[in-house]
Design a protein around this nucleic acid. Sequence first.
DNA 1: GCGCCGTGTTTACGATGTAAACTAGAGCCG
DNA 2: CGGCTCTAGTTTACATCGTAAACACGGCGC
Lengths: 210, 210
Amino acid sequence: MRSLSITSRHPLTQLRIAEAALALLDRDGLETLSMRHLGAELGVEGMAIYRHFPNKAAVLAGVVEILLAELVIPPPSGVPWQMVFREVARAYRALLLRHPHAIPLLAALPLSDPATARAAGAVMAQLRAAGFDAPSALKTLATITSYVVGVAQWEVGTAPFRAERDGTFVLPPDADPYLVELAPQLAEADCDETFEFGLDVIVRGLETRS
Amino acid sequence: MRSLSITSRHPLTQLRIAEAALALLDRDGLETLSMRHLGAELGVEGMAIYRHFPNKAAVLAGVVEILLAELVIPPPSGVPWQMVFREVARAYRALLLRHPHAIPLLAALPLSDPATARAAGAVMAQLRAAGFDAPSALKTLATITSYVVGVAQWEVGTAPFRAERDGTFVLPPDADPYLVELAPQLAEADCDETFEFGLDVIVRGLETRS
DNA sequence: GCGCCGTGTTTACGATGTAAACTAGAGCCG
DNA sequence: CGGCTCTAGTTTACATCGTAAACACGGCGC
């Protein structure tokens, strides 16, 4: 059919595909992100994507790459490490909350992924410059990324309990007693504050490290 | 066909199904865990499972329930909270490492799940008894579960780099420079030690809480 | 002008989750 | 004891998925 659009109109590109995948992911969630839908989003036939990526996992890796590129980790400077550490953690959390459906993608990043290795390396460089020895820097990296991702997951997963901001939050009468006990705290929990609480805990713990 | 085995031999049960699902999960991973495979594992036709669970998600919730039941959280006692806290964290980590393929299932537990609410409630009870106020206890719970799950994911995800215990670990010559920088530390990282490092950080951070 | 190559299309296959119709055995009631 | 019903498992069917393979077509080099 429409003859000119085959290649001249808007040639397919790894970047364009990955961006469309991210848009679809943000809009409709991970479940419904299929190759065919992605093709449709690009005005193309689904199988066309395989000219640019070997498989779906590679497309998702492309999405991860875009997302991690959003995260800027400054090179080492004179700023106290605690400050940089906090800012990077906050930036990562903000990134995750901007793309909640992408969290599962970022929750188990293999270091064999280049984008992941790049971000990890940049954080390591900061920590090393702040006087951490290599093993400590690595453990610290593992600790903070785990914390940030975990809390973001927690926030998104408990969002339903927090939804009723103004109204009364009622849960079904046959609800688990433990849930009943937990619900009030959940309803009035402030996520930003919760995050800063744990971040403080970790920073203070690192400061007093042996 | 075989007449007597229809119900008398080994009746299907929610528990039996969930156990089989866990076995299959441990053996073959999450990807290949399908209703038909699960049916086959139980000597039954796949669709039979829908007599006992409304859908696959419910089966997986059953698996989660079994797993969380493996985690015993003692009721409050005179033991210092730091000790209990550490032991529960270690037990949870051990559970995750015993079932590495189940980690994604446990990484984003919604509190609407009864088994989750139960475990969360038990930890909260411990913390409350140790003098934490309710909001702090909740935030602390979020912090520690995030940390434990995140580190377990990290361990499993970086396992390939650690595999070559005795031999020399070589990575492809075109590997990302950041990866090259990271690899040696990864190769000789001790996971138990890494975990204890972060756990210490968190406990010390909590001890000095304002 | 003509063939090739790169890009997108078509068709096809096996697997998945699950709805709906079906079936066979057990237990109850007369 | 004969038949009804209820329950647990089977069969068939459908839409959707990832992706392999064959095909078609338009722009570029000869």
